[in-house]
Amino acid sequence: MNEVIVVGAGPVGAVSALALQQHGVAARVLEARAEDARADTRTLALAHGARLILERLGVWARVQDVTPITRIHISQRGALGVTRLSAEALGVPALGYVLSYAHLTEVLKQALAEAPIAVEYGVPVERIEPGIEAACVQAADGRTWSAPLVAVADGGRGTQTPAPRFAHDYAQTAVVCEVRTELAHGGQAFERFTPEGPAALLPKRDGYALVWTAASAEAMRIAALSDAEFLAALQRHFGGRQGLFLAATPRKTFPLHCVYAGREVGARVVRIGNAAQTLHPVAGQGFNIGLRDAWELARLCADTPATALGGEAMLHAYARGRRFDVVAGLGFTDFLVRMFSNDVAVLRHARGLGLLALEALPPLKAFVARRMMFGARG
């Protein structure tokens, strides 16, 4: 009865359960997918602050095949203004780290098994009933559990996803794949803003993970191009900072939108990660905010008396504590997309001046970089 139930064993759910246990709070995880289900093939960009969370959980040392981002080059196509961020200037080993979602998921799965934390795979949650004393979780197979607190970390895929408090469809789609370039990346990532949407190159192994954003119809056309046509289009779109684009893996597409569902579902139930908010991928904030959700919830659970765990006062405190970080992240990414995804002359010049000012003012640059790494309270 005193264990917290975490719905979802993806990275945010796993980090939540591991952090709860580390803070002395028992947890049980219910995961809809089978234990041997094929993992997501996405690429993740972890901020340095996310690495620190994984280090505190004793997980980071197990993570392999990680490419550090030591520099970030930010520019806009066809206009003045460049900003360069450097890990060395900020006194950190890296600004971020690029790795596969599947690998991180497997590392966290092993950590859950060794903890040991009770994890039940192949258990879709059909219904969560809030309650005054406890929440009741009902699985599709008819089993039920009661808990003083249920943390929903299912990525917003559950059957009880509430109507969002805020939602915006950017009418954009991301084309993602891995590419190889003529020049070595040297740990440098690129964020290139264009009127059609941002394009990011993230160093991964000896190549890059590409996120190319465009209007949805155009993105689908781009994704369907032959390899040769795709590489030529990418060369025209991105430019020659990395020399020629030599090869690309098969393309996948993801529609982009911003959704804020909020923290609370009802009494004794809280949403974290993508179950609470979904961000545009520009600046790579969404996943990192989700890990901070998980960590901060566990810390608050540890600081709450057992009799008050999951109670109204605790959930309100959690919502207040996370609001600034989440709203700042939502606002920052939304601002970048709206500000840069156009070709209005006045805004183009303003953007250029902003990038030049950021480059010329190291304290301002450090302020922005730290918030990208550690969130609004960084």
Rank of each mutant, 00 (worst) to 15 (best):
A89E: 13
L99E: 00
E88L: 11
V92P: 05
Q76M: 10
S100L: 07
L99F: 01
G78W: 04
I74Q: 03
G96Y: 01
G96D: 03
E106Y: 06
T83Y: 02
S100Y: 12
L80P: 10
R71S: 07
T83A: 15
G81V: 03
L95C: 06
T70P: 00
E106T: 15
A94H: 14
S86R: 15
I72S: 05
Y97T: 13
L95H: 08
S75Q: 11
R84N: 04
G96N: 00
L90M: 13
T83E: 01
V107E: 04
K109W: 09
R77G: 03
T70I: 04
K109H: 14
S86L: 10
H103T: 03
P93W: 08
L104C: 09
L80V: 14
E106A: 15
L99V: 00
L108D: 00
S86W: 06
I74K: 02
V98H: 12
R71K: 12
L95F: 08
T70W: 00
H73I: 05
R84E: 02
L99M: 08
A79I: 14
V107C: 11
L104R: 04
T83D: 03
V92Q: 08
L95T: 11
I74T: 11
A79P: 06
G81A: 05
V82G: 04
R77T: 10
P93D: 02
G96C: 02
T105M: 08
A79G: 15
A102G: 03
L99H: 01
